[in-house]
């Protein structure tokens, strides 16, 4: 059986390491790469390399960054009295898009989940506690873990550790998505929204 020449076979193999890409797609991408201009290919290779070597986690908040501390942590105009806790760096990007929150962040890099082997020592909780001890100006910790059972236990766990220090701990609200029709909302979202209703 005829085999692909080694360089392209290796490239196909590399593409297949990406999530959601199987052999056929990888082959298509590999052949597409052969047709790309040399400059684009060089940039692509360089970008892949840089993303891995130049990025690391911020030593303060745990966000991905190319400088340390990251842009948010080193920005003095940010509200230093609030820290918003998220599961993943991607969540920060989502929250920054609203352009309304100007406090600081903390990335846990996961949630507590014994079944997948993540205990309190395995996620970025210790550094959050140290941060709170060192910075008395923090008055509120906003917990924005996902609305899953694990996200919920992580939030409750953090609240138990932080509240005794006299710091306010809040949790994001549950409810209807803005601009959505009630008729299309699922039953549990509606139940949560009714439970969390507010007086007008």
């Amino acid at each position: 059986m005829l085999q692909y020449p080694e360089p392209i076979a290796k490239l196909i193999d590399s593409y297949m390491k990406l999530p959601g890409i199987g052999e056929k797609t990888a082959t298509r991408l590999a052949f597409f790469t052969l047709d790309m201009p040399q400059d684009d290919v060089d940039d692509f290779a360089q970008n892949l390399h840089d993303a891995k070597t130049k990025l690391h986690f911020c030593s303060i908040c745990g966000n991905i960054t190319d400088q340390d501390p990251c842009v948010i942590c080193s920005d003095p105009t940010r509200d230093q009295s609030r820290i918003l806790v998220v599961e993943q760096p991607k969540d920060i990007m989502a929250l920054e898009r609203m352009n309304e929150y100007h406090g600081l962040y903390h990335v846990l890099h996961g949630v507590l989940s014994p079944t997948t082997g993540k205990g309190p020592e395995d996620i970025n909780i210790k550094s959050l506690l140290t941060r709170l001890q060192q910075h008395a100006e923090v008055k509120e910790v906003i917990i924005a873990t996902n609305a899953t059972p694990e996200g919920e236990s992580t939030a409750m766990y953090l609240a138990r550790l932080i509240k005794p220090a006299g710091i306010k701990v809040t949790r994001l609200a549950y409810g209807l998505a803005v601009g959505s029709d009630i008729e299309y909302a699922d039953a549990m979202t509606l139940i949560k929204a009714v439970e969390g209703r507010q007086e007008m």
Binding site: P114, T115, G119, P120, S153, M156, Y157
Partner: peptide
Amino acid sequence: RQRNKYLRQLHYHQAHDLVYLDVLSDQ
């Protein structure tokens, strides 16, 4: 499921944090 797994980890001394067990019990 999480709580049973964590009880097991406590039993075999792979975990030690009882505050987290309280959280799971509470939930």
